[in-house]
Simulated assay, not measured.
Amino acid sequence: MYRAFALLGLSLCLTIAAPARAATDDTPSLGDISMRPSLSPDRASELAMTLPPAADIAEALGAGPASRQALGPKVMVRVDISSQTMTVLVHGKVVHEWKVSTAGRGYITPTGFWTPYRMHVMWRSRKYDNAPMPHSIFFHEGYAIHATPHIKRLGKPASHGCVRLHPDNAKILFALVRQYGPSVVRVSVEP
């Protein structure tokens, strides 16, 4: 997907930076999608109308017809540190909103965007006295979203940096990520 956007950017650069350049047979292309400049300087306002659809670029890269769906993540997990909440969106629609606990005093929960890279039905923290981390979804270095037995602390900062969820909610999220596959899930942690 990133490659498709990069190629789309290349198409934009070629079209904007060199509108008067003559197209040659050695101009890069993606199958039937030409990367040749397509606009003269006086027609630059028509740029948006001449770009191939992103799905066509993805299909030309060999991603197949399934790429014709939206290129964004299928599942978005948004953690809002300031409100201590998590919002889960599937295909852009909110399906869950839960209380969480992020880093307590002296610890940090990293902010940014990630794709989960590892999942465990049960994991034990090597760093914090073998503490149980049920339904762990690791998203950045050693940070994970996981269940906690400390449900009375949810809605307040209390963790060593991970994102804690009610055990029932962690199980639901784990199943959802497993169903869609981690590669189409994005975790967003916002301050």
Rank of each mutant, 00 (worst) to 15 (best):
S83M: 06
D26F: 07
G64S: 09
E46P: 01
P73N: 02
R178Y: 03
L89A: 05
R118Y: 04
Y180N: 04
V187G: 01
H135V: 02
D26V: 14
D56Y: 02
K171S: 14
E59I: 12
S125H: 10
D168T: 15
R3P: 00
A158S: 14
P132D: 12
R164L: 03
I137G: 05
S45D: 13
H140G: 00
F138H: 10
P167I: 14
G112R: 08
W98M: 08
I145G: 02
I145Q: 08
R153M: 09
F5R: 15
W98I: 07
R78W: 05
D25S: 09
V177S: 08
P149E: 11
H146N: 12
G155H: 10
N169C: 03
Q179T: 10
S11R: 15
H146F: 02
S125C: 09
P65Y: 03
P157H: 09
L8Y: 11
M49Q: 14
P157C: 02
V88H: 09
L12W: 13
P134M: 06
G9Q: 11
I172V: 15
S11F: 12
V94R: 15
L154Q: 06
K93I: 01
L10D: 13
F138W: 05
K127P: 00
A158G: 06
Y128V: 06
K93Q: 11
D129G: 04
V100E: 04
R164H: 14
H146G: 04
K127I: 07
Y107M: 04
Y2N: 04
V77K: 11
V88Y: 05
A48W: 10
S101M: 07
L47F: 14
P182Q: 07
